[in-house]
């Protein structure tokens, strides 16, 4: 299919809505996993590795459960399911990680 044909197949409002859904999922997961990391007492690199693992797991969940293994139906580029919103989630992760770590491990 020519690129023009391909591009016109996607309704842009729906794509925006899908991106919003993914962002929502990622921010919630980041908050939860950040708290988990804090409670577990992970520090340094372990914490970031934990974030990498959990976000990969989240991407897998989105890919299988939400997009039913056909991300091409929902996004222009199917790989977006794996990468969208990961960086934004990092900040919330760090916040909650610090918060819970402080509450649980620093203070008695």
């Amino acid at each position: 299919m020519t690129t023009q044909n391909q591009a016109s197949l996607y309704v842009s409002e729906k794509i925006v809505q899908n991106v919003k859904t993914i962002t929502f999922i990622r921010s919630s997961m980041s908050a939860i996993t950040g708290s988990a990391a804090g409670i577990l007492g992970l520090t340094g690199y372990y914490g970031f590795i934990f974030y990498g693992i959990t976000s990969l797991f989240t991407s897998f969940l989105i890919w299988s459960a939400k997009a039913q293994a056909k991300p091409g139906l929902y996004f222009r580029n199917g790989l977006d399911v794996w990468t969208e919103g990961v960086f934004g989630g990092l900040f919330s992760y760090v916040l909650f990680w610090t918060l819970l770590y402080g509450i649980v491990h620093v203070y008695d």
Partner: peptide
């Protein structure tokens, strides 16, 4: 610095709470 951490981290929480 806790203030700055909150500044960055709460952005996505706001999106969660208040919508886009």
């Amino acid at each position: 610095s806790w203030y700055f951490l909150n500044l960055f981290g709460l952005r996505s929480i706001f999106t969660l709470l208040l919508g886009e």
